[in-house]
């Protein structure tokens, strides 16, 4: 009888472990552990059908579906220019990735062919932010040399569409690395 009580006590113990997790992926793994313990407790009390359902649906199916949902929703989509030297510098990408990781978000780069396509993407809400490495294209077209000097003095700009993401990233990126701006359509 004593072991019955100990096994049953494992269920609230793992449930408590589950609700104290902050990382969603860790919580999914602990949910799997909770499901396994729950299946054991149900089988112990003679409810074999409930145990089987908990193991197959409650653990296997729900964890897989939630993992896919969390993976596709908790990402920061950043629009960048695709070709050549205009891509995201590694220092900024690393700083962004570290800042986002603190909030369990993932950095996802979306490439676009031109400056107009980039602007269109943030206007159509396809991406959460766009990265512009230097001064606007009109200035760069006119005088190549002066555009380069202005790029050296002005840091690259990160236009963020959502105010919450903007406030989260405010302290993470140093101002000389990239300038954060809230996008207004």
């Amino acid at each position: 009888m004593a072991e019955l009580i100990i096994i049953t006590a494992l269920l609230p113990l793992t449930a408590l472990m589950l609700v104290t997790q902050t990382n969603p992926y860790h919580a999914l793994v602990i949910r799997g552990i909770l499901g396994a313990i729950a299946a054991l407790v149900y089988a112990l009390f003679g409810a074999a059908d409930v145990a089987l359902t908990e193991a197959l649906v409650g653990t296997m199916l729900s964890i897989t579906l939630y993992a896919v949902a969390v993976r596709s929703s908790m990402s920061f989509r950043l629009g960048v220019l695709e070709p050549g030297d205009e891509v995201l510098p590694e220092a900024i990408a690393t700083a962004l990735r570290q800042g986002l990781q603190r909030h369990h978000l993932r950095l996802e780069r979306v490439g676009y062919g031109s400056e107009e396509a980039l602007e269109g993407a943030i206007a159509r809400q396809e991406v959460h932010a766009i990265f512009q490495s230097s001064a606007p294209a009109t200035v760069a077209d006119a005088q190549d040399r002066s555009a380069q000097t202005s790029a050296a003095s002005h840091p690259p700009q990160l236009h963020i569409r959502l105010p919450r993401l903007h406030s989260l990233l405010q302290g993470e990126l140093s101002p000389e690395l990239a300038h954060l701006k809230l996008y207004e359509s």
């Binding site: 299946a39 193991a55 653990t59 964890i63 897989t64």
Partner: peptide, 8 residues
């Protein structure tokens, strides 16, 4: 049961 572990 371990199929869930593999998928995850």
């Amino acid at each position: 049961g371990n199929a869930g572990l593999m998928l995850l």
